[in-house]
Design a protein around this nucleic acid. Structure first.
Lengths: 165, 165
DNA sequence: CGTGAAACCGGTTCAAA
DNA sequence: TTTGAACCGGTTTCACG
């Protein structure tokens, strides 16, 4: 992957609805060239999709929390992610190093809803939970700082060097 | 906020580039009615923006971690979020209840880059850090389960009437 | 707040280099 | 892989109910 693709990714991460016309202007390419590159990035999975960023407060889910989970029976097979996938309140599930096995990010309507969710988590995955409640969120969803050299992470075979843009 | 707005929010959260034409079909409204509603949701701040979902591995940032921070001097004013905002590797900053004051979600290129970032965090905000490395991410960015009744939260983001523009 | 139609602009495809 | 042009579809605005 090279310079222009990184630029495109950065721009789309900042504004997922940016038009190809604007993308073209920002990159110095033609509209159809940009179009082709975006398609390729999508097909390759570099761009995994597009999402509206929602204000959870406005949508009835003002309570965010991080729930760390630990299996009650360490010998049992680790199915937690699949067992918990049906719980829509869980926004993300990360397997982590450390004392606990997963960190879940959850969004609920109220403390009672959180209590209920925790019970469902424990029952569904046979785990114990440790919950850290989010009080406020100074910032979130900041676009990634796309690295200068990506070649180590991509299989691109662009041989020639691009001209200065 | 009512049924149709919730539907629109849900659909846009799943696919931030869904066309107004498709949105109209899914909601049973005309294209211009949907257009008007989306604009209003954006203006009200319910829809805060749109973003491409990027594969961090493909983009040279394969290492994710959660960094909990605690002020070294508890008496000092708590400026951490602003002091850390310049570090692009920090994707999110949540103020939390519990032993530590903030949880940061960070994305870096390598263990060395993480080490460097931690030093910058400590130096910039005068805090101690506790880092939990993410090993894998079964899922992330799942769309919010927009609640059935939102009226209790409707006035959170903005007043019902927009101010003079 | 909803609608349909008109006008405009962006998205998409294409042949050529 | 790029480009420009042509075509088509979506976006946006409008007058009206």
């Amino acid at each position: 992957m090279e310079e222009i693709d990184r630029r495109i990714v950065t721009l789309l991460a900042r504004d997922g609805r940016m038009s190809f016309t604007d993308l073209a202007r920002e990159t110095g390419l033609s509209v159809s060239a940009v179009h082709q590159r975006v398609r390729r990035l999508e097909k390759r999975g570099v761009v995994r999709g597009y999402a509206a960023i929602i204000d959870h407060d406005a949508v009835g889910l003002p309570l965010t929390a991080f729930v760390s989970i630990k299996p009650i029976d360490p010998a049992a097979p680790d199915d937690a992610p699949e067992r918990l996938a049906h719980l829509a309140a869980i926004e993300a599930c990360h397997s982590v190093a450390g004392d606990e096995s997963y960190i879940l990010k959850v969004r609920v309507a109220s403390p009672v809803a959180l209590e209920d969710l925790l019970q469902q988590i424990r029952a569904s995955a046979n785990v114990s939970t440790r919950t850290t409640v989010v009080l406020s969120t100074p910032y979130e969803h900041r676009p990634p700082a796309v690295a200068p050299d990506l070649d180590a992470a991509t299989d691109t075979a662009a041989g020639s060097d691009g001209p200065a843009a």
